[in-house]
Design a protein around this nucleic acid. Structure first.
Length: 326
DNA sequence: CGCCTTTGACCGGCGC
DNA sequence: GCGCCGGTCAAAGGCG
């Protein structure tokens, strides 16, 4: 516990490990957040932006305030249904402040290489867990276990628990094997929402927080997290998701939440930059989205220059190669 | 006072 | 059957 706290402080000054890829984002403070599209393939083969995938499809409409001191993120998506990947793309993701890599652990047979060794461990664990759950304890006779979609990603962050616009209650913490750091368990505080998330630090890279979401929110982002200054608007009525669009992994948003504040916290969760990271010396990570249901995305070697060039912040999220394909 | 975190106990699955 | 392990429960305490 104490150690964790100290870690947080220590990591604040922690330098980004080996810069593998030039920083594709500008140092400007992000105020808008375009939604990348055509980057990910959904189960039905439809192009789907990553943010859409995780339920941020409306973000492009919103201005964005970074609230987290937390920083870069590497996302490890855990796609639910055992759908074979239909394509693979290269993406040099975010940039600012985060980069993500997503990989499915649903089938437990994802050949895609994990972004990090820690991720590998996580994947392994996830696979195991998934197997457990599928065969598992919560299944009662004659009752199929609910397959909760999972979406995990790594965040290079000094804080363990990132605000994502939802309210979470911590219900457990366990030391896990092969990890120096304990794993924390959170549950969405919404009574009707069974979404859980696990948060743990990578033992390989203590600066990396691995967050695994399980389940889908059946309600809009309730409020700006505690301590935030912007009062949220009242939640909009729950609406069915776009008929043609299955719920994003781990998140279900009522469509168009009109207010900006409503969506912002979410983004901040994944992409919140550290103020310290607004410099180009920091290297973003390759976003590897390898979801069985979506696509495998490997890093590209786009230069910061080219990335910064055109589309404002869009380039921060999607490399030009990808965007060209659209 | 309500909400949250902490933390030890408990439970079930799995491997040996 | 036993022990290990991950996940969850729930009481206690802290905080605003």
């Amino acid at each position: 516990m104490m150690m964790m706290m100290m870690d947080k402080r220590d990591e604040e000054t922690m330098e980004e490990p080996a810069a593998e890829i030039p920083l594709p984002f500008s140092a400007q403070s992000p105020s808008t957040f375009p939604t990348p599209r055509g980057t990910f393939l959904d189960a039905d083969g439809a192009d789907r932006g990553f943010l859409e995938l995780i339920g941020l499809q409306e973000l492009h409409q919103s201005s964005f305030l970074f609230q987290q001191p937390a920083a870069r993120a590497t996302c490890v998506a855990s796609a639910p249904p055992p759908v074979q990947a239909k394509s693979s793309d290269a993406v040099n993701f975010p940039a600012n402040p985060s980069s993500m890599s997503c990989s499915s652990t649903e089938t437990g047979a994802n050949p895609t290489k994990p972004a990090t060794a820690g991720e590998a461990n996580e994947q392994e664990a996830e696979t195991k867990e998934r197997c457990k759950e599928e065969g598992g304890k919560k299944k009662k006779k004659g009752q199929k276990p609910q397959k909760e979609p999972r979406f995990a990603f790594e965040t290079r962050s000094e804080v363990d628990h990132l605000d994502d616009g939802y309210r979470w209650r911590k219900y457990g913490q366990k030391a896990v094997k092969n990890s120096r750091f304990p794993r924390s368990y959170y549950r969405c505080t919404s009574a009707t929402c069974g979404v859980k998330k696990r948060v743990e630090r990578s033992s390989d890279d203590p600066a990396v927080v691995v967050t695994t979401y399980e389940g889908q929110h059946n309600h809009p982002s309730p409020i700006v997290p505690r301590g935030a200054h912007h009062a949220p608007p009242p939640p909009p009525p729950l609406l069915p998701a776009e008929p043609s669009m299955p719920p994003p992994l781990g998140f279900v948003f009522s469509p168009p939440v009109n207010t900006k504040e409503f969506q912002l916290p979410l983004l901040s969760s994944y992409l919140a930059p550290s103020p310290l990271d607004f410099n180009r010396s920091a290297a973003p990570r390759t976003i590897v989205v390898t979801s069985d249901l979506t696509a495998s995305i490997e890093g590209s070697n786009q230069t910061a220059e080219s990335a910064i060039r055109d589309d404002g912040l869009l380039q921060d999220l999607i490399p030009s190669e990808i965007r060209k394909e659209e």
